[in-house]
Design a protein around this nucleic acid. Sequence first.
DNA 1: AAAGACATCTACCTGCTAGTAGTTTTTACA
DNA 2: TGTAAAAACTACTAGCAGGTAGATGTCTTT
Lengths: 214, 214
Amino acid sequence: MTVAVSSDSLIRPRVSGASLKSEFVAFKVNRIVEAASHLFYERGYSSCTLDNVASQLSVTKPFLYSYFKNKEAILAAICEVGISEALAVLEDVLAHEHGSHRARLAEVVRKVGQIVIDRQEYVVVYQREMKHLSAEDYKRILRLRHSFDHQIGEMIREGVASGEFREDIDPFIAVWIGGLISWIPTWYSSSGQRSAEEVIEYLVQAALRLAGAE
Amino acid sequence: MTVAVSSDSLIRPRVSGASLKSEFVAFKVNRIVEAASHLFYERGYSSCTLDNVASQLSVTKPFLYSYFKNKEAILAAICEVGISEALAVLEDVLAHEHGSHRARLAEVVRKVGQIVIDRQEYVVVYQREMKHLSAEDYKRILRLRHSFDHQIGEMIREGVASGEFREDIDPFIAVWIGGLISWIPTWYSSSGQRSAEEVIEYLVQAALRLAGAE
DNA sequence: AAAGACATCTACCTGCTAGTAGTTTTTACA
DNA sequence: TGTAAAAACTACTAGCAGGTAGATGTCTTT
């Protein structure tokens, strides 16, 4: 098999436990997820066949089955990307940003907005196709999502308690902020009029305005 | 065929051109659209079979084909409901509400929010499944949507020009307000903690805050 | 270079689903 | 009540898509 040697996961020096073989596997899994995500985004999960995904990668269907149990497992992998990255960013900000609540909120919204733009297709597929997940995958991913929503709600609550956000703000506003963020991938286009930076700045301002923290 | 005699479209006295027969047809078309909308909402368009839709109505597949050209035509009918109602409301408000720009914006957002909650399933199906429309239906419905977005943008622009909204507001904010509205059906549940009225009040406040018109 | 292990493919099955042809039932009206 | 037209149904086809069994190719190791 010919492999792009410049890929991140290949040039990075090997660390402790990870064997070269498992890195190859991870690389292929990743390529499958990328290709599937793109096709599911364009045609929808149910209308997109595994033959489509395979031919996009110039391989065959049984190739996919040697890396994923079934079609649904590929969807689960896609759904997990966006939400787990967002959660990682959130926890990173909570751990390292020790400024005002306002600054923390702005930072989280900015970084999550960036992920949502970077991972646009993943996020859209996640939102649209989650119902096709198996019960187990569905529960697992919903837990991640709830953890995220809960922590954002906490941030708002603390900001209100500290007097930095307007006191008539309901932590429920976190849902609306989530809405702003989730809405981006349905209309943002990298080839559109607005740059990603512009959109993110708007997003941050809008979120702060909703939180009453301008 | 047994028909619910209490249905609106049947007890309403006949008007001028519409024949009784065409009212029957409209009634059946409507029932098909309702049932299909519900099932497409739950299982997704592609995964939902026409046999599913038929059996939901206790009829058979060829019955559907005598009222719709094909599966896609049913989807088009569903997609059209929400957006054309929203457009009707918008034009009604623009024609009759002659108060401040702030009042107009609040009224449009309130009424469209109400539609989005009433027609929740239609709106979700519209957002999720639009890409499965034929090229013609897609263009037709996109035109309705653009008309709506454009008019909202106009409202904001006028509000800014009149000095009622903050001058640093970009009409692009209309996209964000659209996001707030479109977001509702993905999380609102009539059996949830928040009542429809509460949600709509929040929505209106959030929209005004985004427009800088508090 | 031979052998075994591993990766990938060819070729297939099975069940499903959009769409249809032709028959039966129901309705409308005389 | 008889008849024609309209409405709905039964029974079918053709093609597709998820999933698999077994064959083929390709490395590694000795």
